[in-house]
Simulated assay, not measured.
Amino acid sequence: MEQEELYLLITRYLARQTSAEENDWLATWVAQSPDHERMFEQLKLVWQGSKAPAANAKTAAALRNVKKRLTLPAPVPTPPSLPRRPKYHLVALVLLILVVAGGVWYLAAPPSPQPYTLRQTPAGQKQTIRLADGSRVTLAPQSQLRYPVAFDGAYRDVYLEGEAFFEVSKDARHPFRVHSGPLVTQVLGTKFNVSTFGPGQLTTVSLVEGKVQVLDQHARYLLTPGQQLRADLTTGRVHRQLFDPEQVSGWRYNKLIFRNEKLADAAPQIERLYNVKLVFADSATAAARLWATFDNEPLSAVLSALQLAGSLTSRREGHVIYLTRQVPPNRSAVGRP
């Protein structure tokens, strides 16, 4: 798309004259790079400035000066027979007038910064959050979500550290975006789980219902229900795979499912849900395999399952649980009779 067509599409979007297909294309274009997003926000600001009250003397004077300098003729209705695509100089002229008007208005009354709310959860606790658009977010333990008090831009942006399950209200004109680690997950209305813990760790987006578009610095990926996208910052690998929804999002109901996983890999989920710290005596202990389902079980039941998983013994000191692999006693040699 040429630059003048792009500018016209943005102004038509701000005037609420675009179709659903055009909205989707524009949303994808904006999300492709920070430069695109900045350009969109600048044009949006100019558009808002051009709609300042006519009583603003500075804005009116600026418009008169621009029109005089450009010898702008009186507006003439466009005949239906003319091509729909405008000439470049007409688009540029409209944008110039908007820039001058918006710039004067912005300097006279700079916008207030958008207020954000930060919610955090400690280990062992979850939290349900209702956003201004009606979307519902279940925040996992040891996670945080930053979101605006009100969504008043082209996008509904939220920022996640940790894990959360999203049930997003539909709004075709304002895509919902979750910024998490290296990924941006963009949706219109759907249910999905996002998990990212710590720098360099795995970030996953698991789609339960609807459709989502996930973007990183190099590409975008479309997911269908039952698909999960996994991005590893350490290796740079990004791939899609199928997943078990109950295993991924069961934490919302205190349910953990492990299918032949190493204790070292299962430990972070147990620690977050039960507010404990698991310490392994050695690598052999951490490598023991766990196959179990904990459906709102008490911590004692979890520890019993861990002990059975690898012939382990446990010792608890406050919130810290030490796990050690049992070593079978040496058998003494049996002499001949």
Rank of each mutant, 00 (worst) to 15 (best):
P329R: 10
Q42S: 14
V276R: 07
W47A: 03
P110V: 02
T78M: 13
S81A: 14
V94P: 02
D24R: 12
R316G: 04
L90H: 05
A74H: 08
R230K: 13
I129T: 09
I97W: 05
Y7V: 07
T78C: 11
L8I: 08
R315N: 14
S314Q: 11
V100H: 09
N56Q: 14
Q228Y: 00
T59Y: 12
P328C: 08
L299C: 06
V248A: 11
T235K: 08
E246L: 15
L312F: 00
Y147K: 10
A140L: 06
P328N: 11
V205E: 02
L45K: 08
L222N: 10
R289G: 01
E167K: 10
E2K: 13
Q48W: 07
Y253V: 14
Q142F: 10
L26G: 08
F197N: 14
Y116A: 06
A15C: 00
P199C: 13
K67P: 05
T203F: 03
H218Q: 15
F40C: 08
Y253E: 15
D171F: 00
T121E: 06
Q201A: 15
L107P: 01
H218K: 15
P73T: 10
V104G: 03
Q17C: 06
E2H: 07
F40K: 09
R69I: 14
G189V: 00
G335W: 13
V279E: 07
R336V: 15
V91Q: 05
R336Y: 13
N65R: 12
P245L: 14
K262I: 01
W47G: 01
D244E: 10
T121Y: 04
A101N: 06
T28H: 14
L118D: 05
G49S: 06
P328T: 03
E297R: 15
N330Q: 15
P75H: 06
T204A: 08
G189T: 06
L207E: 01
G189W: 04
V104D: 00
E163P: 10
T185V: 02
L98I: 08
V137G: 10
V137M: 02
F243C: 10
K191V: 14
Q247W: 07
S50P: 05
L223V: 05
S33G: 04
T224D: 05
S300L: 15
D157C: 12
L222C: 07
Q217A: 15
D133V: 08
P122I: 05
L96K: 07
N260I: 00
R12I: 06
A31G: 11
F192P: 07
N260W: 02
S332K: 13
I129Y: 11
R130K: 14
L290H: 02
L72S: 08
Y7Q: 06
Q186R: 13
P115V: 00
A108W: 12
N193I: 04
Q228H: 04
R84S: 13
T18W: 01
E41W: 05
W105A: 14
V334K: 13
L72M: 14
K51H: 15
T234W: 08
F280K: 08
Q247M: 10
V302I: 06
T313Y: 03
V238C: 07
D133N: 00
N56V: 04
N260E: 02
A287I: 09
M1V: 11
I129Q: 10
D152A: 11
T28L: 10
A150I: 09
F280R: 10
L306Y: 01
L188C: 00
Q32N: 12
T190F: 01
G310K: 03
